[in-house]
Design a protein around this nucleic acid. Structure first.
Lengths: 207, 207
DNA sequence: ACAGATAGAGACCGATTGGTTTCTATATCG
DNA sequence: CGATATAGAAACCAATCGGTCTCTATCTGT
């Protein structure tokens, strides 16, 4: 009731510290990587103690999963902001530019780190699998929805979008140790032209 | 001179233990990942003691780098076995199948693990950079050489081959947490058709 | 065969890890 | 207000890490 600044409900306290912990985890994975993202590191970055952390997360794994989910959520939020429900369809250029920008976005390295770690950590892999599936299915759905104006078969759209995403993923990962911005730019350009040609060849007029 | 079975020269002893250590490192990264590939793990797998390890490698980093170099070397050896110097050029199908097979090869996960780790480990990144550059340059050279019969501009061949490699890289990494073998197969097929069309459109007759 | 050099074994060390426990501070509700 | 439940702090723990050190085994050149 009072306007006392420090006064928060339990729900608010809870949500705030959880938010700080997840944000710190994402930042830490970004900056020092998955494996050096220790609980001490997260506590230091978030200003929350270990006691506080373990009140809300039962293990390091739970925290990592929460961070991965948040990153996936932000990807979808970003797309829905670019093309709100019912808005006119995006062009191929716009979609490719968006995909490329999100894949190169700082927070997306969380995905690379976590997916690679999941290969050798069964617990992580099990927990991550449904999240990955959900993200990729959502990406494909958005793509199919956006391009249904073109008369391209749904399966072709799905294959094209996942292939492009994989390509930009690989490009980003290799770029850490062998960066080639000019080649990457040429590739982005070529991808747009290729997909536009594909759309024109298979369906309606190129957009 | 004698046939005494245990008798080896210093060079042989040296080469053998180094070989065992590098092989154990590759296997360990394959099976438990980069970060859990501790020196203890490598020693246990190779049957070499820590003292023996540090006689030949000054640090864990040196060992990791040796493993990465060996994996890159094996990729190139495999290609040169498939198409020995002076042998007739491979078809697009053959090249794509080879690239895909190598990228999915067990030893190649060493690359993924090490490249991702390199993002956040400056020492590793510095050491890995020239190796990565050398590998990718060698891949491009082999591709250009193989396809010089087609009248496709060299730059196009380079862009196409690195893009395909990136695509298969991304596919492999995502596949750990969301495997889709049928989609991957369709993608491999589509890649071949696409590249063949590209070759036909830009240059000589499709092969 | 023997002296010097190289290779290898394994105990050891300080630092860091994920996780536990104990205790205090704050919010809720009658 | 006072009792109870939730949130958070921080000391603490065993296990593991990369790396060092000391000592022994094997090989080489004479």
């Amino acid at each position: 009731m009072s306007a006392a600044p420090g006064r928060r409900t339990q729900e608010q306290r809870r949500a705030e510290t959880i938010g700080k912990l997840v944000e710190a985890t994402i930042e830490s994975i970004e900056q020092v990587g998955y494996h050096r993202t220790s609980l001490g590191e997260v506590c230091a970055r978030s200003g929350v103690s270990k006691g506080g952390l373990f009140r809300h997360f039962d293990s390091r794994l739970d925290l990592i999963i929460a961070a991965a989910e948040e990153v996936a959520r932000r990807h979808m939020v970003a797309f829905d902001e670019l093309r709100p429900r019912g808005a006119p369809a995006l062009t191929i250029e716009e979609v490719v530019a968006f995909a490329r920008q999100r894949i190169r976005h700082e927070t997306n390295v969380v995905w690379f780190e976590v997916m690679v770690a999941a290969r050798t950590e069964p617990d992580l892999r099990e927990r991550l699998a449904p999240i990955t599936k959900h993200l990729y299915d959502a990406i494909e759905e958005r793509a199919v929805e956006n391009f249904e104006g073109l008369d391209v078969p749904e399966e072709v759209v799905r294959l094209a979008v996942t292939s492009a995403v994989h390509m930009f993923d690989g490009e980003a990962i290799v770029g850490y140790s062998y960066p080639r911005p000019e080649v990457d730019a040429a590739r982005a350009d070529a991808a747009v032209r290729l997909l536009r040609t594909l759309g024109a060849a298979l369906g309606g007029p190129a957009r």
